[in-house]
Design a protein around this nucleic acid. Structure first.
Lengths: 171, 171
DNA sequence: ACTTGATTAGTCAATTTTGACTAATCAAGT
DNA sequence: ACTTGATTAGTCAAAATTGACTAATCAAGT
């Protein structure tokens, strides 16, 4: 559902062809939704079948024809509906990294610490990258700030976990 | 990959049949991984094909036969590998709720606030539920603490967002 | 003019995921 | 003894997702 909302929202300020949409998502929205190229095309076609978007072929030179998608009035109505639904509900995030943590005590403390240090480096790099995203207009900026807030908290927490392991193992 | 790690980790302390595994995951681990019943069976069969787990049929009365899964030594090796991999990497969480936030400015402030208040209620309920999970043994407890830490931060952040909207719209 | 590598655009087969269903057993009220 | 509803266990078809591929255009060095 969130993928439909995202695509509709982007189409609201102008028709776009598939590649543009994917470009935009990958470059500026990868922070909040995970949507690969083939998935975007799949969802667009689905919404076309539902009459939420319309598609026009556009020939340019003799490249393969481009599929330009635009939002219909039914699509606009769906956007309004999906937006309200999304805002009103809380969807919990999944932390797949927690699976490893759940079994951390199967490993010698020293090894666990070394592995978590690598995780910490990756997390730090991710945070730095997010902090250097240039400001976005309007409430899009909220999502970036949310991400930074979250990553900062994760870093603090990871440091605490590592400190605790150090203490417990008496290093 | 995280699903395989999770299932292998559970099988390490004793063979289980499919339903038991799902039961355990849904009741105590839904916090970190999202894995529905049919998916668990799918992954178990996959790992059986790879020789990571073995399956024995167990007839009991004339119920449908139960498939009891146990970990093999190849599975144990895979577990060791996957655990180290998981611990060493950082996998960013997806916040699908951010998609709605990105388009928050399409709505009148008052309506946005009302919707976010519902989200806040749901979040608060989720936090309370998580806080009342009884303590788990070993490092499993880490995942619960992580979740609580995260949900608490989310609540604070949401409050800040709502306060900011109130200010901006001059309520 | 021509190879090489990047960019643009999209497709397809294979994998992964899940909602909805089936079917047996058990508990317990009548 | 017998319906009713919960619990246990698993399957299956349909939907969603993605890695790997194709294929044209463009840039730019030689």
């Amino acid at each position: 559902m969130d993928k439909k909302l995202l695509l509709l929202g982007l189409l609201r300020n102008g028709s776009m062809h598939g590649y543009q949409l994917n470009e935009f998502i990958e470059s500026t929205l990868a922070t909040c939704v995970q949507i690969k190229r083939p998935t975007a095309y799949y969802v667009l076609n689905k919404m076309k079948a539902d009459g939420w978007v319309h598609e026009t072929q556009q020939q340019e030179g003799n490249r393969p024809p481009r599929h330009v998608y635009g939002i219909t009035s039914a699509g606009e109505a769906a956007f309004q509906e999906l937006l309200r639904q999304n805002l009103a509900e809380y969807t919990s995030a999944q932390f797949s990294g927690d699976v490893g943590l759940a079994f951390l005590d199967e490993l010698p403390a020293v090894e666990g610490l070394a592995l978590l240090q690598k995780r910490r480096d990756a997390l730090q790099a991710h945070l730095t990258a997010t902090q250097s995203i240039p400001p976005h207009p309007g409430s899009l900026q909220l999502t970036i700030e949310h991400q930074i807030r979250h990553l900062t908290a994760e870093l603090i927490w990871l440091d605490e976990v590592m400190a605790q392991i150090s203490l417990d193992s008496g290093v």
